[in-house]
Simulated scan of single mutants.
Amino acid sequence: MSINEFIKNFQSQLENTDTVVEPETAYNKESYWDSLTAMVIKVMIEDEYGVDMEPEKITSFKDINELYAFVAEKKQ
């Protein structure tokens, strides 16, 4: 799993799939972020990477880099 693949999967879950998402994006501070989006990302992470986590945990990371690092670590 690469960060680019992870970002592509993350981005595909957003309502507006043209939204720019970078490794440094503080996604939980963006206007598109809400509890429904957190649930959608949670399901994507479970389905794509086999990592189960609470939506609150997803929201706790600073940016995509931190979320990716957590998922990558748990996936192994």
Rank of each mutant, 00 (worst) to 15 (best):
D34M: 06
D18A: 12
L67Y: 10
E56R: 11
V43L: 13
E22V: 10
K42L: 06
I58H: 09
E5A: 09
D47H: 12
F61R: 10
V20W: 01
M44W: 00
T37G: 01
K62N: 11
M1R: 06
T59A: 13
N65C: 09
E46M: 12
I64D: 05
I41F: 04
Q76N: 07
L36P: 02
Q13N: 15
K42R: 15
D18Y: 09
I58Q: 03
I7M: 13
L14Y: 01
E5H: 12
K57L: 12
S35G: 03
N9K: 15
D52R: 14
Q76P: 00
K29F: 10
V40G: 00
V40D: 03
M53N: 03
L36D: 01
V43Y: 08
T19E: 15
D18H: 12
M39H: 02
E15N: 12
M53A: 09
E48N: 14
F6C: 00
F10D: 02
S60W: 00
L67C: 01
N4K: 11
T25A: 12
Y32A: 03
E48Y: 10
Q13K: 14
E48H: 11
L36M: 15
V21E: 01
V71Q: 05
Q13G: 08
V40C: 07
F61W: 09
N9M: 04
I41S: 00
A69D: 12
E73K: 14
I3F: 02
L14R: 06
I58D: 02
L67G: 05
E56C: 02
K75C: 05
N16S: 10
T25N: 09
E24M: 08
N4R: 13
V20S: 14
I41Q: 00
S35I: 01
K42Y: 00
L36V: 14
M53T: 13
K57N: 03
N16G: 05
F10N: 11
I41Y: 06
T17P: 05
D34F: 04
M39K: 02
